[in-house]
């Protein structure tokens, strides 16, 4: 499997370009601040420290993980096409599927490393401040796995855009736009419609699907336990609690597959 050779090289490049360091520092720093800040109001709310921290980290991850995923991937094909390294790479005996999978594996590993460090910081801080009482591995693990699925979805989107436009600068602009739409505008739009709809058919029948369809919202739904969401989050999460976790989970598993497949379809037709 030549994908291993590609992954190995991409990891080396990610390390050289400081992508690994940047991702890890971002995740660790934000988790550190949020866990500490989120711990302050615990007493009054009565929620356990892990839930509070996990909710804070989830809110953070919804913004940060898609961003890191897109930043890691937007240059993957366009950059190589522009530098002229793609044509040479494609004359070696390996398929484009292997190239894409190799890059994906490396970038996912970078993301996994950053997320893992972030979660270790979170768990470490909770242990330090509150001890091990009530600390179960289940929630951090769920957060870890779904973070990777979220990241993978946006890696796939990044490759798709990268292969489609073939110009690094254009790809970077488009992925920032996609990030803005998926993470910020999508929720605002839904919220606007919800308010206008005043509990009509949209709120009951369409909204849950639309919420689960966005991988970022699906991620939030899975990781924010409904009972605390109403207390801790003024977000859409509360309204979305009508959506089954199953639907959100399915969405989060489908997105990486769909976007990677779409990226492969475009990459397959690309003439370097």
């Amino acid at each position: 499997m030549k994908a291993f050779a590609i992954a190995r090289l991409e990891l080396l490049i990610a390390r050289r370009n400081m992508w690994v360091a940047t991702s890890v520092i971002l995740m660790a720093l934000f988790t550190f601040v949020l866990t500490l800040a989120g711990g302050a109001p615990t007493g009054t709310l009565g929620a356990d420290p892990l839930t509070v921290a996990a909710t804070s980290v989830t809110t953070l991850s919804v913004y940060l993980i898609p961003l890191i995923g897109l930043l890691l991937s937007f240059d993957a094909i366009a950059g190589e096409a522009e530098r002229g390294t793609l044509a040479l790479g494609l004359t070696y005996p390996l398929s484009r599927r292997e190239i894409l999978l190799g890059k994906f594996a490396a970038h996912l590993a970078v993301l996994a490393f950053a997320v893992a460090i972030g979660l270790l910081v979170m768990v470490g801080l909770i242990l330090w401040r509150h001890g091990s009482a009530g600390l179960s591995p289940e929630r951090p693990l769920k957060l870890f796995a779904t973070s990777l699925a979220l990241g993978a979805s946006f890696l796939g989107i990044g490759y798709f855009v990268s292969a489609l436009v073939r110009r690094s600068a254009v790809a970077s602009g488009i992925v920032i736009l996609i990030w803005l739409v998926c993470i910020v505008l999508y929720d605002l739009g839904l919220l606007g419609i919800l308010i206008a709809d005043e509990g009509g058919t949209f709120t009951r029948d369409v909204f849950p699907w639309l919420l689960a369809a966005n991988p970022a919202d699906a991620f939030r739904l899975i990781n924010m336990p409904a009972e605390t969401v109403s207390v801790l989050s003024s977000d859409l999460g509360a309204a979305g609690s009508v959506v089954g976790t199953g639907m959100a989970l399915a969405s989060l598993m489908l997105w990486p597959l769909l976007t990677l497949f779409a990226a492969w379809l475009v990459f397959r037709r690309l003439e370097p």
């Binding site: 050779a5 090289l9 390294t85």
Partner: peptide
């Protein structure tokens, strides 16, 4: 053209693996 962040040896080893 090659990836500038790699050394000549790293780049050639990569191609050898491919």
């Amino acid at each position: 053209a090659f990836h500038g962040a790699l050394s000549g040896r790293e780049q050639l080893h990569h191609f050898a693996r491919l």
